[in-house]
Design a protein around this nucleic acid. Sequence first.
DNA 1: CAAAGTTGTTTAATCGATTAAACAGTATAG
DNA 2: CTATACTGTTTAATCGATTAAACAACTTTG
Lengths: 342, 342
Amino acid sequence: MKKKVSLKDIAAKVGVSTALVSYVLNNKKTDRIGKEIAGRIKIAAKELNYRTNQIAKSLKTNKTFTIGLIVADISNPFFSALARIIEEEADKKNYTVIFGSAEEQAEKSFKLINTLLDRQVDGFIIAPAENAESNVNYLIQHDVPFVLIDRYFPLIETNWVTLDNYKASLMAVEHLLAGGNKRPGMITYNTTLNNLRERKTGYENALRKNNIHFEKDWRKEILFDSNIKSSVEKAIDELLALPLPIDSILFASNILAFHGLKYIHSKGIKIPGDLSIITFDEMEASDLFYAPLTYLEQPLLEMGQLSTKILLENMDMKKDPVQIKLDATLVVRKSTLPVVVK
Amino acid sequence: MKKKVSLKDIAAKVGVSTALVSYVLNNKKTDRIGKEIAGRIKIAAKELNYRTNQIAKSLKTNKTFTIGLIVADISNPFFSALARIIEEEADKKNYTVIFGSAEEQAEKSFKLINTLLDRQVDGFIIAPAENAESNVNYLIQHDVPFVLIDRYFPLIETNWVTLDNYKASLMAVEHLLAGGNKRPGMITYNTTLNNLRERKTGYENALRKNNIHFEKDWRKEILFDSNIKSSVEKAIDELLALPLPIDSILFASNILAFHGLKYIHSKGIKIPGDLSIITFDEMEASDLFYAPLTYLEQPLLEMGQLSTKILLENMDMKKDPVQIKLDATLVVRKSTLPVVVK
DNA sequence: CAAAGTTGTTTAATCGATTAAACAGTATAG
DNA sequence: CTATACTGTTTAATCGATTAAACAACTTTG
């Protein structure tokens, strides 16, 4: 790699001190600096194609203009879409994004946090894994600015931006009920992650609210690290083998829905009609299905932009925690029975 | 952000110079250093929870252990999968990845390259946009190590890892022909990007090789920045309105195939039977379709790992350009007529 | 036992940029 | 005409870590 042009080179070329060059290029002390010399310095900088060495600058200013982004898996469309938005938003403010995939493991996430801290990131945006409370507390202890995204821990007072999962789930189930379904089932993950727990309670409360007795057997929980495909298939089999089988299913994520749909289809079950389906997360892929899925769309753009904004503000100055729940949009398509329009 | 522990703090605590602390923590000059003191330094470092300030280290060593990754769009599944692999591979070698989306624009990509160079990345992995030759030459001029991925420029001698697009395309069309199709069409992008041009010539040569006259009207080219959906629909309409309509289609990308499939389906055309379909890129989403797509699978893992490996080797020492074409795997599913097994 | 070699540690320069403070030289005020 | 204020620029310390070179205190060696 070629040696880069430094302030020193410019200073030498113009015949002044590096201090003056620095002042000129940063537009500082403009009132004191001679116009003629300032001009010559700027020209020299351009001629030499000077670019600030951010490493050196960072060392001195103790600011890197870098954000660490830690997600479960950057190749998951949900997170990669977020990553893109965050990168774009950060770029607008002259920040650069460093990322890492924690693969839903608190340990890996902790390692990543430290790696990025060594690189002096100015703050973090994190989708925390299950049981990652200690990671979050570690950041708090060290006074590192950060914003949680997608998930949060109710007992930890900090910044977060997430979906109103409870409300979304409630809305989804009520949509099923309004469509004439009587026994909605749910397939979700077995996890203590707050966002998924809220989806569970949303489901339960929707039933209660509508005077439907919540049958434990109506809800199936898939282990995170199991073979998702076969677990989902088993769950569906069980839901349909009930004495009074469920007549509709709420999937708690696109991945669950994807596997579920394939299996349901293979069994020759008609959607809707035999079974109504609704899922969390965008499911454009289901456009290829004969019955495109009704889904709960997350406001990714808002989520990404807000979390970036909150983080940057917190880096400027410590603020009170900001906690935001955003609303999902119910996108009604063909997989749920037509709802009577009021 | 809390002040971090520095070498100085350890030195003060133990009562030695920072030099000694540095030697001990980096396991240098181990033969000269007193065992007892070394032990005390290590303990102190642990007690104070010392972590190297990589910024300072980088400034001194002129090495950041950082890789810049520039792709067209990180939220495109193809690139996000690559990003994940690259990050994982880099992490194994203690490198960190900084990324940016260039949105298929050479200009944006140039801006990104400079931003990341300011941050002193040690090298780049880049999926270059159309007309980004100047960017690549810029890197060469400045002696910056880099590897192109997915696309390359035939006239520029440099490192790249890409699919053997010509071969893959040829294989795809021959598969169609072997299945009994007589008039395969192709829907691709109108671009000078090398990977897509090779897909075009692969298609042409497959026809020639099989003594099928290549009709210009059989191939449709979609403008990159057009409304992809409507352009694809128009293309399909035209292909089917030919005096002798095409009987099969090769899509040059998953996005094209996705829109095409939806439209074909909406028109009630049967796949296969009425029309055979084959596409580039993984198309798991089509599992939901009644006829899962036959596709050309790219060896993403190998691609990501190889490009990272080549980059790291180049950063150690300048080497001759490495140029690798990897083979696609034809994954035969239901969208193409059964092929006679020889 | 003096010269030479070892051992264990410190000194000090350096990476590139920032910035408070110092410093000439000139202009203005009293 | 001296004291003060301003102008334009330089000096030098600093950020945190690395590392060649210096150094003091011992040990060997011939």
